[in-house]
């Protein structure tokens, strides 16, 4: 068997061996491959990635990281991730009694079995990183919200203008599920361009957030001086 962690079921290891050698997998979508990748990492390594999220310049690494992170946040128990992996393997033709072709799976994944649409980025810190590790807070998976609140939070000026054009009657003061208006969010995160547009459109600046703060106070606490001046009541 390949370098497996001991405590995985034989179904899981057989399924992964099958998936590593089956040729029809080249037709499988990148989304499924990524999901399999994330589940595999969860089951054999840890529930969440052990590195920080790769930058946007490393699209592949980032996609893989996200897939792993998503597996870790979706499946509470390792067993559930394992079951999901096996479930997908079955849809790709694996059965409990599929023959295990060990010869192929034992080869280091160098040339023949690499990639298939997903280009690798190999960490090069290697053993030169012996010592303790740098860690920062794990970042929750981000979902791109196509809402007023979503564009406000990610400082998406184009998105905001597009949104306002498409929905001219949209309520600029609407609250999201957490009770914040777009102005609250933009003031807190420090997105001056968004605030300028919202203010130009006559947004209500005295609305209190769930903690009783108006946007001006949120910007003050967060130290966004330019916004603070703009919103000064």
């Amino acid at each position: 068997m390949p370098e497996f962690v001991e405590n995985v079921s034989s179904s899981f290891s057989n399924a992964s061996t099958y998936l590593s050698s089956v040729s029809s997998l080249s037709k499988v979508s990148a989304a499924i491959k990524l999901e399999l990748y994330g589940l595999f990492k969860y089951v054999t390594m840890s529930s969440l990635p052990n590195t920080s999220r790769p930058s946007i310049f490393d699209l592949t690494g980032r996609a893989k990281w996200d897939a792993w992170n998503s597996a870790g946040t979706t499946y509470f128990r390792k067993q559930d991730a394992e079951n999901r992996y096996i479930e997908i393997a079955k849809t790709l033709g694996w059965t409990e009694d599929s023959e295990v072709s060990d010869s192929k799976s034992q080869q280091p994944a160098e040339e023949t079995t690499s990639d298939r649409g997903i280009v690798e980025r190999v960490p090069d810190n290697g053993i030169e990183g012996m010592g303790v590790a740098v860690s920062t807070m794990a970042r929750p998976a981000e979902f791109k919200e196509e809402t007023l609140h979503g564009v406000a939070i990610r400082n998406d000026v184009q998105g905001l203008l597009f949104f306002l054009e498409k929905y001219p009657d949209a309520d600029l003061n609407s609250r999201d599920e957490f009770g914040y208006t777009p102005l609250h969010l933009a003031a807190d995160r420090g997105h001056l361009p968004i605030i300028q547009i919202l203010v130009d459109r006559g947004v209500e600046i005295m609305i209190k957030d769930p903690d009783g703060f108006i946007a001006f106070e949120l910007a003050s606490i967060a130290g966004h001086d330019a916004i603070r001046e703009l919103l000064s009541p």
Binding site: L19, S20, K33, L36, Y37, K41, T44, A109, D115, V122
Partner: peptide, 16 residues
């Protein structure tokens, strides 16, 4: 299919 098997990650065997 090293992606599926997770080999390309930190613990895996890869070229580099």
């Amino acid at each position: 299919m090293d992606v599926v098997k997770g080999k390309a990650g930190l613990g895996g065997v890869n070229k580099k």
